[in-house]
């Protein structure tokens, strides 16, 4: 695994990572019931903004893609499009057990069960559904990971695109997202960095 190479960082990278972790903007994809836990997390009671985490509107602006709940086959398409539109470094956070193993929709014919087969998930927030305390604690560990330079799952999407693409195609055939992910990886030097 490339884990070792990735953690070898220059001082500049370390400084940058420690600044970057202070500002995380979140795009929340709210299909499931879990979204109801987000308002208290953002507002006066728990105040997410004190960690520099803010909700944002469009994928171009966001750093975190928060999937709050089950994903049907139809919505997964949108999520993949949105994920590919985001600007790297980007972190997918699976929220609630639906994203981990399908949760209560385990035997539904139209939902997907494990999100990490389709997108590189940075971390999961377990629970049905996780309370604001759990969300805050989860985000804090994400912040730590970014600071240490360990949150690199987004590179995996470029490196192992065939794996994700195969699983995506298996669910809904070919989709036109106007993105050539491997070419992007080469253009921005993400694939070279690994070698």
């Amino acid at each position: 695994m490339a884990e070792k190479e990735l953690t070898q960082r220059t001082a500049w990278d370390k400084v940058l990572a420690n600044l970057r972790k202070r500002s995380l903007w979140m795009l929340h994809y709210c299909t499931g019931c879990g979204a109801v836990e987000l308002p208290p997390t953002m507002t006066s009671r728990f105040d997410m903004e004190r960690f520099g985490i803010m909700p944002m509107v469009t994928p171009r602006q966001a750093d975190i893609l928060l999937i709050t709940g089950y994903l049907s086959v139809k919505t997964l398409k949108r999520v993949i499009l949105i994920y590919e539109q985001m600007v790297a470094p980007k972190y997918v956070v699976g929220f609630g057990s639906c994203t981990i193993n399908g949760g209560m929709y385990w035997n539904s014919y139209t939902t997907i069960k494990a999100l990490d087969r389709y997108l590189p998930v940075e971390m999961y927030l377990a629970g049905c559904m996780p309370r604001p305390e759990a969300i805050i604690s989860g985000f804090n560990s994400l912040i730590d990971k970014i600071g240490k330079g360990e949150a690199n799952s987004w590179k995996d999407y470029y490196e192992n695109y065939e794996f994700y693409k195969k699983n995506q195609d298996h669910v809904f055939g070919d989709i036109e997202t106007h993105h050539d992910v491997p070419a992007d990886g080469r253009y921005f030097g993400i694939l070279e960095a690994k070698r």
């Binding site: 600044l19 500002s23 995380l24 171009r60 539109q85 790297a88 921005f188």
Partner: peptide, 10 residues
């Protein structure tokens, strides 16, 4: 700083 140090830009 975070925005300026993004790896991919569109």
């Amino acid at each position: 700083v975070k925005l300026m140090s993004k790896k991919t830009n569109v």
